[in-house]
Amino acid sequence: MSGISVILMSTLVLGGLYLLMAAGLTLIWSTLRVFNFGHGALLMFGSYLTWSLLNQAGLPLVVSILGAVLAMALIGAAYEFLLVSPFIKRPGGDMTVMVATLAATMLLQSGAQLIWGPEIKQLPQLGSARIEIAGAVAQGTQLVTIVLAPLLVGVLAYVLKRSSVGLAVRALEQNRDHAQLLGIAPRRVYLAVVMIAVGLATVAGALLGSMQFISPAMGADPLLRAFVVLAFGGAGSLPGTIAGAYAIGLLEAVTTYHFGLSWSPVLVFLAMIVIMLVRPEGLLRSRVRAA
């Protein structure tokens, strides 16, 4: 019996982490039509920055995370300014941007190695709250992840649904030329989208740095999983991404529990290939958009 509750708890933690990553990637994909390869490295950088604010600047943990999110949003703005906007409007510019984000990954990883050195770091647990349900225990950062990730992405989805900014983002996704003719400035929307996405990745980085370790390569794994989530949920749809994140979390929790940690990634990617064969538009992709 406790097997099921352990799997479910693990699903909520993993799903939440992937959700924070994939929501930003989806937002970037649906507006800019590029896959941001740098997203994992940005997560890693945000994690290190949180560590520095905590241990070198001596700020409280929550303040450190908030500070890192703000600082990373600014770095996200620079990222958009240097890597995205110079190329995106050129013919075939989306490929150039994707290569540029790959290059940024290398740069950020080497930068982190230079700044923070090779030894592995860790953030402390976020709080000491603890709950136990049917033999499964969630405490500290895990518990925060379970609550915070859907909350943040839920707020994001609500803002996209209700506000004028959200309307502009969705309009740009659906018809770029016409959106411009209405008076929407794509540059501003891109900037906002990248800053929000990087902010969410930083939160994921802080949570991951507290549950596992901080290292220059720590972003690679979440990036790959978020990529699978995008394929799973249908890139560009936020509800699909939410469902996809928890589906992948569940899949990983089940396979880890029954087959072991080393088999789990293999099975996750196998599932992705099957999904892409059966439903190439993603699990929840709506018909209206496909038309």
Binding site: S164, R170, L181, L182, G183
Partner: peptide, 29 residues
């Protein structure tokens, strides 16, 4: 103001949302 050719519009916005957006984005917030 240019109403472009084709009727693709914004398939997933409601009529009211699309009209509101056209108002706010053109500076009549």
């Amino acid at each position: 103001v240019h109403v472009p050719q084709g009727s693709r519009l914004f398939p997933q916005l409601s009529v009211e949302e699309a009209l509101r957006l056209a108002g706010t984005a053109s500076g009549h917030g």
